[in-house]
Amino acid sequence: MRSGSHSLKLKTTTRPPLFSCGFFRQCTQSVLSPTTVNPPAAAAAAELEDSDSSSSSNTSQSFTQWRFPMGAADDQPKEVDGRMPPPPTARRAAEGNSRSLEENFHVAEIQFGSGSDSDRLRAIHLLERCLVPDPRSAADCPAGVMAGVVSCLREGGAAARRSASKVLLALSLAEENRRVAVEAGAVTAVVEALADAETAAAERSLAALELLCTTAEGAAEVRAHALSVPMMVQVMGKMEARGKEHALSVLGVIYGGSRSESESDVAVAPAEEVARAVMLALQGECSARGRRKGAQLLKTLQENGGLDLSEQCEMNG
Rank of each mutant, 00 (worst) to 15 (best):
D265G: 08
M232V: 06
S3L: 14
S137Y: 00
A200C: 10
A108H: 06
S60C: 13
P230K: 03
E103N: 10
R178V: 05
C152E: 10
A241Q: 08
A44G: 07
A72H: 03
N97I: 07
P16K: 11
A93C: 09
W66D: 10
S53H: 05
M231K: 10
H246L: 08
T28C: 15
R242E: 15
P85K: 07
N97T: 11
H6W: 01
Q26I: 03
M232F: 02
V37A: 13
V250S: 02
S172W: 04
N97R: 14
A271E: 12
W66P: 15
Y255P: 01
S287A: 06
A247W: 13
A184D: 06
L121P: 05
S258P: 00
A288P: 06
E221M: 13
E128G: 14
S310E: 15
A45H: 05
T28N: 14
S116T: 05
F19L: 14
A295C: 07
Y255A: 05
A288K: 06
R83Q: 13
S7I: 06
A207R: 13
V149P: 00
V80R: 11
A275H: 08
V268I: 09
P16I: 08
S30G: 07
S258I: 05
L298S: 01
R162N: 06
G317H: 05
R289F: 11
L251A: 04
S57H: 04
Q29D: 13
T188R: 14
L32H: 04
G306W: 01
A139T: 15
G294Y: 08
E198I: 00
Q111A: 11
A123F: 03
M232I: 03
K238P: 02
I254Y: 01
L307F: 08
P133F: 03
T59M: 07
R2N: 10
F68L: 09
A295K: 05
V80S: 03
S60T: 12
A207N: 05
A90W: 00
R92K: 10
C27W: 07
L18H: 06
M70Q: 11
P34R: 09
L153Y: 02
E314G: 03
F63N: 13
M236S: 00
A220E: 02
S51W: 12
R276C: 09
H106M: 09
G218P: 07
R120K: 13
S287I: 09
H225Y: 04
D134A: 15
S98K: 08
G284L: 10
V190A: 04
R83M: 11
